[in-house]
Every structure is written in structure tokens, then in C-alpha cells.
Amino acid sequence: MSRDATLALIARYYAAFNAGDAAGMLDCVAEDVEHRVNEGAHRIGRAKFAEFCGHMGVSYRETLKDMVIFANDTGDRAAAEFVVHGEYLKTDPGLPEAKGQRYVLPAGGFFEVKNGKIARVTTFYNLNDWIAQVSR
């Protein structure tokens, strides 16, 4: 896959995220996608990724802004930096109570791409920063 094709794939993935289009996100990932979430569970497979997307869609409303996407020359690795603008809608077990709190959080994603699909996505954000923002 070319660098430009990888950039387009990652842009499509995040455009689907911003549109609340879980099916569009799933279309971008491999059947055996490896999903690593900052300080969270490590999931393997599109079905587990779909469960995560469903949970996130109920507990959070998020829009990613100031997106910058990078890819290496061969197109098999990529990264994105962005700012999450969100609202905490439903209490996530083990986290503070949800009361519609709003938050703004710098974050990023790291990707491995194989055969035109995202094979691995690792998400990073500062959980302590998020907890401080929703605990006010």
C-alpha cells in the first residue's frame, strides 16, 4: 500500500469516527485487527472492536479536531495526532460518574496497515487528565 493510500485510509477511519459511523470504522480494519487502548483492554478481532465501538457510542460523544496524519514511505505504519472534544454521557465502570461533563484532551493513534486495512491501532491519551476534567 502506498503512503498516500495509507493516509487516505486513516483519514477515512477518523472521518467515520467523527460521523459516529461504527460500520465505516469497521470497514477500515482487518478481520483480525489488534486494538490496544491506553490503559485499557487489548482486543483482537473485528467483533471485539465492534463491541468497543458500541460501548463508546453509548458512554461518550466525541469529535476529533486539529487532526494531523503521518505515514511512513512504505505505507505500512501511520500515526495521527488530534484533540478530542467530548461529553461523558454514561458512567463507565471504574471511572467517575457521568453527568454530561465536557472535556478537551490531546490524544493520538498509531497504526499498522496490511493489505489495505488497519491491522493494529493503538490509542494514547492521558487518563489522569481526563479524570481530572470530568471530576470537577
Results as ranks from 00 to 15, higher is better:
residue 1 M to W: 04
residue 2 S to L: 10
residue 3 R to E: 02
residue 4 D to A: 15
residue 5 A to W: 07
residue 7 L to N: 02
residue 7 L to G: 02
residue 7 L to F: 07
residue 8 A to H: 05
residue 8 A to Q: 11
residue 9 L to W: 03
residue 9 L to S: 02
residue 12 R to C: 02
residue 13 Y to T: 00
residue 15 A to W: 00
residue 16 A to C: 07
residue 18 N to A: 09
residue 18 N to M: 09
residue 18 N to W: 07
residue 19 A to N: 10
residue 20 G to K: 09
residue 23 A to V: 02
residue 25 M to G: 01
residue 28 C to E: 00
residue 28 C to S: 12
residue 31 E to K: 11
residue 35 H to C: 13
residue 36 R to M: 08
residue 38 N to S: 14
residue 42 H to I: 05
residue 44 I to D: 05
residue 45 G to N: 09
residue 45 G to H: 12
residue 45 G to A: 10
residue 46 R to Y: 07
residue 47 A to F: 05
residue 52 F to K: 02
residue 54 G to I: 06
residue 54 G to N: 15
residue 58 V to P: 02
residue 59 S to G: 13
residue 60 Y to Q: 14
residue 61 R to M: 10
residue 61 R to I: 03
residue 62 E to S: 13
residue 62 E to K: 12
residue 63 T to M: 12
residue 65 K to V: 15
residue 66 D to R: 11
residue 66 D to Q: 14
residue 66 D to I: 09
residue 68 V to A: 14
residue 69 I to R: 07
residue 70 F to D: 03
residue 75 G to V: 11
residue 79 A to Y: 04
residue 81 E to R: 15
residue 81 E to L: 11
residue 82 F to K: 04
residue 84 V to K: 02
residue 84 V to D: 00
residue 88 Y to W: 06
residue 88 Y to D: 01
residue 88 Y to E: 01
residue 88 Y to T: 06
residue 88 Y to S: 03
residue 89 L to E: 03
residue 90 K to G: 02
residue 90 K to T: 13
residue 91 T to I: 12
residue 92 D to A: 04
residue 95 L to G: 02
residue 96 P to M: 08
residue 97 E to Y: 06
residue 99 K to H: 14
residue 99 K to T: 03
residue 100 G to L: 13
residue 100 G to Y: 10
residue 100 G to T: 08
residue 100 G to M: 12
residue 101 Q to A: 14
residue 103 Y to A: 07
residue 104 V to K: 07
residue 104 V to M: 07
residue 109 G to K: 01
residue 110 F to A: 05
residue 115 N to E: 15
residue 115 N to K: 13
residue 117 K to P: 00
residue 118 I to E: 00
residue 118 I to D: 00
residue 120 R to W: 04
residue 120 R to K: 11
residue 120 R to M: 12
residue 122 T to G: 03
residue 123 T to Y: 04
residue 125 Y to L: 14
residue 126 N to S: 14
residue 128 N to M: 12
residue 131 I to S: 10
residue 133 Q to K: 13
residue 134 V to H: 07
residue 135 S to C: 10
residue 135 S to M: 06
residue 136 R to V: 12
